[in-house]
């Protein structure tokens, strides 16, 4: 299974991002081999609205089976579930650490949204 991890940059050593729709990168990994398949830049990170569902569409287009993030909003959650993508919260400091944690089996799949809508918008983003 291909897993996407919300990150601030590319590769295993990248810092993770706690946001989903506005995460600057998604690092796609093969957890069984702890290898990076691809790092994709998230063009939706600066969208005025609807960043969550568009990011879900992006992951769906890449045949991702699960995503590990810090938080997820209501629209993103709806779209990820419609795409059959399992949501895990609990990203660690880096992408590599997050895979290790995932392989221990301690991350739990999510049932509800963890934050209200628009939580990924940084203060002053559109100044």
């Amino acid at each position: 299974m291909k897993i996407a991890i919300c990150a601030q940059g590319e590769g295993l050593n990248a810092k993770t991002d706690r946001r989903f729709g506005r995460s600057p990168y998604f690092v796609l990994v093969d957890p069984d081999h702890e290898t990076v398949l691809e790092s994709i830049r998230n063009e939706n990170a600066d969208a005025p609205g609807g960043a969550g569902p568009q990011s879900a569409q992006l992951l769906s287009e890449h045949d991702v089976g699960a995503v590990i993030t810090g938080n997820v909003g209501p629209k993103a959650k709806q779209a990820l579930q419609a795409a059959g993508i399992v949501i895990y919260t609990g990203v660690q400091d880096t992408v590599g650490d997050t895979i290790k944690e995932f392989m221990k089996g301690v991350l739990k799949p999510l049932s509800g949204a963890t934050v209200p809508g628009h939580s990924g918008i940084q203060k002053g983003q559109w100044r």
């Binding site: 969208a47 005025p48 569902p53 568009q54 569409q57 419609a82 795409a83 059959g84």
Partner: peptide, 12 residues
Amino acid sequence: FNALAVLKDQVL
């Protein structure tokens, strides 16, 4: 305005 998401066999 990102009002539509196309996900495999669904459109939201």
